[in-house]
Design a protein around this nucleic acid. Structure first.
Lengths: 157, 157
DNA sequence: CATGCTTCGATGCATGTGCAACGATCAGGC
DNA sequence: GCCTGATCGTTGCACATGCATCGAAGCATG
């Protein structure tokens, strides 16, 4: 993209479109199969990484407002997929954890995720490593700029 | 990402987070300066590429529901930034165009966009080309799978 | 022209979302 | 202990979003 503005080459635009497509593509797995929303899937995914995660941790690490995390957690709890309990060390914290039912679901989801990811790597071909490095570069650069509090802006949609 | 599922390495997740960050970062320009929403900015951006664009064209080319495009266009028209008129050749089509005021705005926005894009290229360093190729690969692969009508699913998050 | 089918854009409606409170809790100074 | 300020999660509210639907218009066939 030289001087004139060319939308099709504008990076935020292209990344957003790609993100939307990938997200939508994979969403079929958790939506059609388990009826999970995207927010719910993200909470589940975090729980698959660590047995117990607080709402705050999820909120801090990704593009999800804390109210979004909170509501997703409530829905998942009502569905018997996760548990919510007050932390012993800090009673302001709400600690989330998978139920047995949730663990079974997550195992299946993880399998599907790994398969989908492998498929994407194939699409990327030999440039996969460079692509990941690019994401890192963009993400880190942003991390450098952010500091105190957060801007309050919102999600990508 | 080998066998176990690792969220931090999951591509749809990483791309979505990066997209959100870039989008939010650049959104300050059009939000704080012109009070545009993201949807409105996208419509404007399309109009900067071609003098006249129909709602359909914007909807077809990106992750925007036609109702989203329609409403964004209505707001922009009310703000005196764009014009809407019925196409002569096909009276179902609504053709959008920038007003003088809109053109001035877009000129400034384009300048900011070009500057921001250049900044991102710097962040990417020598891997920029490979990163763009990766986006292409992911996007095209998806494009290969889509064919007749569209799935109906929309927008990310 | 008449008929049936498709496409475009707008709109009603239910739901999701971000943001700003708010209560509860914690940490620190005194 | 008491007070002040900060942090965490929830909730109210206004608004955006997606989806289904609708009317208007095109397009094809006869």
């Amino acid at each position: 993209m030289p001087d004139p503005f060319v939308l099709d080459g504008f990076l935020p635009y292209r990344v957003a479109v790609t993100a939307g497509r990938l997200s939508r593509e994979f969403s079929r797995v958790y939506q059609e199969r388990f009826g999970l929303s995207r927010a719910e899937w993200r909470v589940m995914a975090h729980l698959s990484q660590e047995a117990e995660v607080s709402v705050r941790e999820i909120h801090a690490r990704v593009d999800m407002d804390k109210s979004k995390v909170s509501r997703a957690a409530t829905r998942l709890e009502e569905a018997g997929i996760i548990t919510k309990r007050i932390s012993d060390s800090d009673r302001r914290l709400v600690v989330l954890g998978l139920t047995d039912k949730g663990a079974v679901m997550m195992a299946e989801l993880a399998e599907a995720a790994v398969a989908y990811h492998a498929q994407l790597i194939v699409r990327l071909g030999p440039g996969a490593t460079a692509f990941l490095a690019g994401l890192e570069a963009l993400g880190d650069a942003d991390g450098t700029q952010r500091h105190a509090g957060h801007t309050g802006a919102d999600q990508g949609q």
